[in-house]
Design a protein around this nucleic acid. Sequence first.
DNA 1: CTGTTAGCGCCTTCAA
DNA 2: TTGAAGGCGCTAACAG
Lengths: 371, 371
Amino acid sequence: MNQRRRRVTIKDVARESGVSPATVSNWINDRRISPATSAIVAAAAARLGYRPSGLARSMRGHPTSILGLIVPSVTNHSMPAIVRGAEDRASEAGYLLFVSNIDRDWEKALEHTLAMVDHDVDGLAYAFSVSTPADPAIKAAREAGVPVSLLLPSRAGSDQVASVVLDNASAMEDAAAHLWELGHRRIGYVSMTASTNSGPERLASLRLALRARGSDIPDKFVYIDDVSPPRFTDYEAIECGRRGAAFLLSKPDRPTAICAVTDLLAVGFLQAARELGFRVPEDVSIVGFDDLAVARVASPPLTTLAVPGYALGQTLIDVLLEAARADGSGHGVGSGTPHTTHVVSATLVARGSTGPVPERAHNARRGRRRP
Amino acid sequence: MNQRRRRVTIKDVARESGVSPATVSNWINDRRISPATSAIVAAAAARLGYRPSGLARSMRGHPTSILGLIVPSVTNHSMPAIVRGAEDRASEAGYLLFVSNIDRDWEKALEHTLAMVDHDVDGLAYAFSVSTPADPAIKAAREAGVPVSLLLPSRAGSDQVASVVLDNASAMEDAAAHLWELGHRRIGYVSMTASTNSGPERLASLRLALRARGSDIPDKFVYIDDVSPPRFTDYEAIECGRRGAAFLLSKPDRPTAICAVTDLLAVGFLQAARELGFRVPEDVSIVGFDDLAVARVASPPLTTLAVPGYALGQTLIDVLLEAARADGSGHGVGSGTPHTTHVVSATLVARGSTGPVPERAHNARRGRRRP
DNA sequence: CTGTTAGCGCCTTCAA
DNA sequence: TTGAAGGCGCTAACAG
């Protein structure tokens, strides 16, 4: 008798407690029921091990209490923290969470969105920005009337939709200010093509911050590794950083400081730089992003822009729930609706990998040393 | 008109294509329908943007195509990889996945299990062993007739249930063999209370491996940090490792090598050891567990037991699906049913943090040096 | 091959 | 406060 047992239904409970099914229903939603019958029904339900079917309830218009979270890929290394934050918040609010990773495959995004919509989710959170290719998925969700929240890489367009903005602009401004104060003027940037969203956004922001100070980043100081293998690993990211160091530090004309799109690249850069005979931070300063465990562990410890991933995930769900409520109360009329936007900042954590610019930096003829 | 639009139903499609609802149903499940009508219905469905309601279908006995994954906490740092593996495999097999983290709170395990059961999931995977406290949740799932798969820390009891075994015994045997060959006889162990499952299991396995060689681990060489704050962080794990080093290395009578329950502890231990004036691996050898990104980045790079987290997650779902199929075909009669068990091994990756035992180790009166 | 009928488990009028 | 009846969207018998 391991057979999938027949479900105990509202009728069974009704029979067991000698009332009508409707009364049991009233008990479930506790409304207009006398304490006396309530007790009787409760006892019967307990005796039978009755649990209302979520399916049937939702059929009658109740919310499913399911939210969906769609994640682009592991490229953004604060993703695990985001997922945890989202999951915790959803659970606190009484929701179950579908989690789905699309590996930067935008067709999958649409596919998974539809699958979730078919299951009548109460809302959908996208942990990536509305880059053009992802648009169809989000459009589909909205057309189906499902509330949506987005994680955006900048404030642009954030008022069009419920969203959480990870303010790359202010982060890179902080990094620029930090390096500038240390005297750096020749600043480079290291990223990889796999960082679809954050990568370009952060470079642009850094450029902007530098231009505001009358400087800029020459193209030769920008290294973008074009790995984007099907299954991208942490190890590969570190390798990207190493290649970045080889590329940027091998020529006499080189930056005195670099920013990396994520700590993993930064750490790879750091290691390779030291192997090439450069001291960190005496010869070259390095700024990471994310503040992963590796950042603290690197030697020297990495100066980085700490992303509050967990809080970010929580907020993504908060904003979604808020949007859902607004939507439900029915006074949303398309374009005019005001949408919540939360701005979350990455904060600079100054550690050992950044220091004053080397004296003779402009000559840039420093010989290689053994580590 | 942002209102949650009324769903397009089978009836709408029927009317639009001039057939009966049943025919549309037949088209959906494509069975006994003529090519001609099929085309007509398809066209109508497309025109209307019709999508079958998963809810309604499941009400009629169709599987929900939803699987649940319940994760204990972030304590086990290969968890993100496991979740990704599970998610990918589920998605490949056409399932959506509920993911839920219970933060080592066993009541939550039951609660989330029931919530998922209420939503008629087709199976439930538990990424932690059946430790006594978790039992109620798993029991509840099985009583509800939901197939279950487990991630077990040892082969014990693995034949009672569909499971994937992360073979800690063979892993620690490998570690012991590695250290033994290097001449180590005084071996310690560093863990934390937060590592509920893996911690004790790995210590026991290491002991066993050592005893088989005529040695053992004295209690004074075992350090178990008792942090278990509500929201446990990577940083805290590193700190545990540091405290472990302070504890184990401060006395003249100390181990020449240690195994840590996870890389994060190992790296903390490593850092603190060096700060205390010990060279690694000349004065003390360190073996980690998991093979996280930090392991490669540490200096020296960490010798560790690599856990194939991604594969593990995949297998957990494979096994679950298999169990579900067996269950569905109805020839399961309780205790007699054979269950699939996959054994996955952690493999030793020898890097720079382990080396030959120091010559005068037995005297253990080595003076502290500056790093 | 197609249409009719009944009902999955629950909720919501409406009447008692 | 409680009961009876109808139906959410879909499917499994049947009948035609």
